[in-house]
Amino acid sequence: MSDAKNDHMVEVQNLKMYFPINRGLLKRHVGDIKAVDDISFFIKNKETLGLVGESGCGKTTTGRCILRLYKPTSGTISFSGTDISHMRDKALKPLRRNMGAIFQDPYSSLNPRQTAGSIISDPLKIHNMASKKEMDEMISELFKMVGLDPRMTDRVPHEFSGGQRQRIGIARALACQPSLVICDEPISALDVSIQAQIINLLEELQEGLGLTYLFIAHDLAVVQHISDRVAVMYLGRIMELTSSEELYENPLHPYTQALLSAIPLPDPKAEKIRQRIVLKGEVPSPANPPPGCHFHPRCELATSDCNVEIPPLRDIGGGHYVACLRV
């Protein structure tokens, strides 16, 4: 995984993102929240990598590190072969054109005092992608692309429904024709009947524009549906990473197994015969994670070396990576 391959759009190596905890009058550094704790993975060209995990597992932080909204504590992130992990803002700006971001909350991700058209034109203006003349044309093209009525460009966000707002967010992310789009929980704030519209839109756009997605969500069923490969995170680390089908058919990590069994199925018959693994206890604090494997205090299979040794994420064949000593 170390040598940068040509078909890898993003290559993350040993990424750590610690947020310092400062206390007291002198803001003494008393510890770190280890949001992301030494993870490595790559995203291939034109694929969708799903990143799934529960709140506080570091999935959003990982996405923001790749967008370079945070400066990583250590590790490298290369984007199309360029190491961006410690690049300065100025050098980064032209690269930002190639990265789009879709956020979770369609309410807080759009400036309520800007019109929809102006929101979408922002990235075009920042990167000088269009002259004033072309601008209106491009905005209405983008509106049509995401399934919005171009006559609504001069409306402000609160005049749109949740699903429509998310479409505006998608149009903004795609305005500069990026190659990579980070989708951070793009559908979890939407109603069930609207979610499928957005999932389909994202799939169609990927096909049509040849996009690469990092799809972050907590809902494994959705992630599986849209992703080629899925990485399961727990408390700042990747526990398992494999293809979408393999993850469902052959989950190897005990956490993945528990996660899969916890998802309620909309099928009473299947539910009645299904064995549910109910995890004991709760997710520990990322400020004070357990030693060794982060999952061992809740793991059924844990033995004495699990709380000493940090299991590496190793390939057990066919691109199936697992971080567990017991597998």
Binding site: V192, A196, Q197, N200
Partner: peptide
């Protein structure tokens, strides 16, 4: 019926079944 068709099920392959959303809004 629309709701059932529009939710992704666990274990579905990528590119397998396409979700059928309910068009429009409530």
């Amino acid at each position: 019926i629309g709701l059932m068709r529009s939710i992704p099920r666990l274990g579905e392959k990528r590119g397998g079944r396409k979700l059928i959303p309910i068009d429009g809004m409530p």
